[in-house]
């Protein structure tokens, strides 16, 4: 395990222990500087990542904020049929302020449908959704406008909340920076790479500071670094008290979520 791997493992441990994102970044940077200057094996200098993370938590504590907070999203008994095929049966999910929920399951098990029902974009055949506060929704794709610049997207979305142009642009760029993307470009959305367009998509959904954020596989086309940035950003939003629902089929980041809803049908072929 080289320095970078140790640092990455250490970072994951800090996140898991709910150390505030910015504090964690400083600690990781300081450890990296130390290793660069002094050399040496991180396992000897700092010890195992878990142990060092535990020592850090003991020194600086974990992220403040009430947790779990009040319920922000409550979906009960969601059932959806397309023709004779039942896509969702009696799905239930509760997410509180300051929580990240993951919706997982095999392809075609209705993850996106469930999210769209939560967002109020389609109606279920049965069930109810209660949302407290403002909703933000990031579709899997197609949420951007090909012939507009990133800035114009921010202005358009911001105006919905009565935001003036300047603040909307600044808020958009700041949110993009958190994802490691400099949005001050003069490139039309259609010329952005898949991963960057997805960052634009994501930035649009967080711009209006929603209380409940629904994300449908938001990391399509992301490289490793962007992927880490995304989860940092989600942790930051969670620590600010947002309720976040992420549809995902990647299981390795589940250790960074608070609740999991598995939509894989319990019994195959048991449809009525």
């Amino acid at each position: 395990m080289n320095d970078d791997e140790w640092l990455r493992a250490f970072g994951a441990e800090l996140h898991q222990r709910r150390v505030a994102v910015d504090a964690a970044r400083h600690v990781i940077a300081e450890a990296a500087t130390h290793l660069r200057e002094g050399g040496g094996d991180p396992w000897l200098v700092f010890g195992p990542p878990q142990a060092y993370a535990a020592a850090i938590v003991e020194s600086i504590g974990t992220a403040p904020g009430p947790r779990p907070g009040p319920v922000r999203l409550h979906a009960t008994g969601i059932t959806k049929r397309y023709g004779r095929r039942t896509v969702l049966r009696d799905a239930t999910l509760t997410v509180r302020a300051g929580q990240i929920a993951a919706v997982i399951g095999a392809n075609g098990c209705g993850k996106s449908t469930f999210l769209r029902i939560c967002a109020g974009l389609i109606s279920p055949d049965a069930g109810e959704v209660t949302v407290a506060g403002r909703l933000g929704y990031c579709p899997q794709q197609g949420g951007t406008i090909d012939f507009l610049l990133p800035d114009e997207h921010f202005v358009l979305v911001g105006a919905g909340q009565g935001m003036a142009r300047g603040p909307a642009r600044r808020a958009g760029r700041a949110a993009a920076r958190q994802l490691g993307w400099d949005a001050e470009s003069t490139v039309l959305a259609r010329h952005l790479s898949g991963g960057t367009r997805q960052k634009l998509n994501l930035t649009m959904s967080t711009l209006a500071a929603p209380d409940v954020l629904l994300l449908d596989e938001p990391y399509q086309g992301f490289d490793q670094g962007s992927y880490v940035n995304l989860w940092d950003q989600l942790a930051r939003l969670r620590d600010e008290g947002r309720a976040i629902v992420v549809v995902t089929h990647l299981l390795n980041q589940l250790d960074r979520v608070d609740t999991v809803l598995d939509l894989t049908p319990a019994q195959q072929g048991g449809r009525r």
């Binding site: 109020g120 909703l135 209006a208």
Partner: peptide, 15 residues
């Protein structure tokens, strides 16, 4: 047609 996907989103954004 081009705005079809976007409009529900803008609706959520306060339009």
């Amino acid at each position: 047609s081009a705005a079809r996907e976007l409009e529900p989103r803008l609706r959520l954004a306060g339009y």
